[in-house]
Structure formats: C-alpha cells, structure tokens
C-alpha cells in the first residue's frame, strides 16, 4: 500500500521528504532533510559544490538511495520495491547537467523511446507527442538528426522535450545550464520559464539567480548536507538570515 501523506489543505503533497539521511560510506551527505513541495510549486536549490543538493534531488527519483527517513513522491513512498520505483520514475522527469541524450538514436527516437517501451504507446501517437514538445522547445526541424549534430543548448532542450514526452507531474533539473556555453544558457532558461508558467512542479538545482528571482516560489540554500535556509526569493536575496548564505550570495552575485 502506498503511503498517503496529506498536508493541512487535505491535498497530497507532490513531494515530501521526512528526516532524510544519506551516507556515502563514512561521509554524511544528507543530514536530516525535511522538505514538502506542493503541487505546482517551483523550488530552486543552490549551495556550494559538495553540499548535497544534487544528491537530494537524485534521491527523489531513486537514482540514489537514502538510508534513513522517508521520501514520498505523489503519495508513493520510495522503498526497495522495484515496481514503486518504476511508478515514481514514470511520473518524475529529470534533466541532467550533461544532457545524457542517447547518441545512437535520432532526436525523434530519443523522445519516443520511453513512451513506446514504457507507456506502450503506438509509434505514431508517440511521434505526434514528440513533435509537439520538440516544437515547444523550438527545434522541430532537428527531429531526424543525431544528438552529436546539435549544439549544447539544443541538446539540453531536446532532453527537456524527451522528459516531457512521458507527461511527468514533476520535473527535476540537475544544474541544467552548468555545462553550456554562456550564449546558450538563455535559450534553455527560457524553455524552463515557459514550463514554470504552465504550472509544472519543478525542483531545480542551479546557480542562475535571475531564474530563481523570476520563477521560484521558494529558494533553498544547502551546505554540508543540510538545508540552511529556505525562503521566498525576495526575502532570500534581500534579507538572508545566515552567515553562510550571505557569504555564498556575495560570492556568486557580483
């Protein structure tokens, strides 16, 4: 039985992390993480490298396993049950720093692979859906090329379209613009802003503070595996509470 976790409004939270801990061997990467994400909420996570922010969102679709505490995604608790893990992964899309497109498949095939094999969608329908999202990320004309023929920004937009083809309820972004040339950052961010405006639940690890100001409902600052500070973007940037947050912000905002 999937565990239901209801918040005060009676609605199931999109994501709930309850006292989550994780260790890599001796190293304590996540220390007592508590976080509830409402449906449609956009959250930006920042912090120095090694602070556990990527690990935290990778726990949400079980690319990493947590050792203590509970993670409940859309009412389904992540345990060792493979069926449940697959269920959660079908509903949670993820975009990676290095795109991770499948280089042996065309752009269109990249987008239709999972709908065809996981959702058992007829090929024609899957291609229609794929073209719809490729049009939305503004590269329908590249459908029959291979990933290696595209620029970094284009590849990352394909990766977003590929995730959207599974019609996810939640999108996780793991530093989606960190590996891009500066002039390509904007096209990817624009795509993400568009997604946010449509009400997608989003968790985004990024240092693009302009993006955080523009779309985030809450900004989280992590350090040493802990959530140090969590606030609305306005408060977060204008009035940071902790010394570490202030130091971090002074280093990345010039």
């Amino acid at each position: 039985m999937p565990t239901r976790d209801r918040s005060a409004t009676g609605q199931v939270d999109a994501i709930a992390l309850e006292s989550v801990h994780k260790w890599y061997g001796e190293f304590h990467v996540l220390r007592d993480i508590n976080l509830n994400v409402r449906r449609g909420e956009r959250i930006v996570i920042c912090g120095p490298s090694g602070s556990g922010k990527s690990t935290m969102i990778r726990c949400i679709n079980r690319l990493e396993e947590h050792q203590k505490g509970r993670i409940i995604v859309d009412g389904t608790e992540l345990t060792n049950d493979l069926k449940r893990i697959d269920e959660v992964r079908r509903d949670v899309g993820m975009v990676f720093q290095h795109f991770n497109l499948f280089p042996h498949l065309t752009i269109l095939e990249n987008c239709t692979l999972a709908p065809i094999w996981v959702k058992k969608m007829p090929k024609k329908d899957a291609e229609e859906v794929a073209m719809k999202y490729l049009t939305r990320v503004k590269i329908p004309e590249q459908a029959n090329k291979y990933p290696g023929q595209l620029s970094g920004g284009q590849q990352q937009r394909v990766a977003i379209a590929r995730s959207l083809c599974m019609n996810p309820k939640i999108m996780l972004f793991d530093e989606p613009t960190s590996a891009l040339d500066p002039e390509m950052v904007k096209e990817v961010l624009d795509t993400m802003v568009g997604l946010a405006e449509e009400g997608m639940t989003m968790l985004c690890v990024t240092h693009e503070m302009g993006f955080a100001r523009q779309v985030a409902d809450r900004v989280i600052f992590m350090d040493y595996g802990q959530i140090v500070e969590m606030n609305t973007p306005n408060e977060f940037f204008k009035n940071p509470q902790h010394e570490r947050t202030k130091l971090f912000l002074s280093q990345i905002l010039h």
Partner: peptide, 19 residues
C-alpha cells in the same frame, strides 16, 4: 549517465540494457 537517463524515463534495467 546513459543508465541514469534511461532509468529516469522509467525504463527498467533489462530494457535499458537492451535499448
């Protein structure tokens, strides 16, 4: 990353291995 991308799309391991 290829394993992770396949997993995040809901492909289970044998299917990811094959496709």
């Amino acid at each position: 990353g290829q394993w992770e991308a396949a997993a995040s799309l809901g492909l289970h391991r044998p299917l990811a291995l094959r496709l």
